[in-house]
Amino acid sequence: MLQYVNMKIDGGDFRATKGSSVLDVAIEYGICIPHLCHVPNLSEIGACRLCIVEHVVNGRSKVTTSCTLLVKEGMVIRSNTEKIKKLRRNIAELLVAQAPNSRAIQDIAVRCGVKEVRYPFRNENCVLCGRCVRVCSELFGAKAIGFVGRGKDRRVEPPFGVLSDLCKHCGTCIDLCPMTFNPCEGYMKSGEEHLCGKCESQMLLADNLPESCVWCELGEGFQCSRY
């Protein structure tokens, strides 16, 4: 039998299923919390940190990721404070500076209000969100790829860097990868990377109703789990 708890998000009262995460609940009720590494039905690793919220306990608020935070009776969450918006924007800025050539990441940056990137662009082809790794091992049990190395050398690879017969060529990893779509204008050459800013209308939409999901196209781009 399903059990329920009552909780508050951004002042509104919600009834949530016990065992679900704050992010699940927010998405279910149409509260927009940007996220990247979260994929429904896969384990949560809390790696991208975009889904941060303020969790208020005894009057003190703590910044934590909503995807890893399980709902609890009487819980108080603030998902869209100035502080959270600023932190999220800074994280998104770091991400887009790393991978400007992904439409998903560009969209996330727009959604999080990044207007300018203060770091030199790099052109990585992986943001280490781990979507591919988890779907491969958790959904298919193939364990053909995994995280290898540490820190700045961390990367996704099959064992010893060569594709083995563990891989069943199902292609799900590629479907889930946020790096597979180029920005609308196409691939940017090195030295010419920028925020495309094409999604301004979407951004306005999102900006005006920051708390609620408006099914913006940005979400489609970054594979928001509402889609």
């Binding site: 690793i45 975009l50 770091y119 280490l128 820190g151």
Partner: peptide, 21 residues
């Protein structure tokens, strides 16, 4: 810290890297 960060989460992996830069 850049050497020792496990690299899992974005702010630590990229943030330290950019601060060092």
């Amino acid at each position: 810290l850049q050497d020792e960060s496990c690299g899992k989460c974005v702010p630590c992996r990229l943030g330290i890297d950019r601060m060092l830069e």
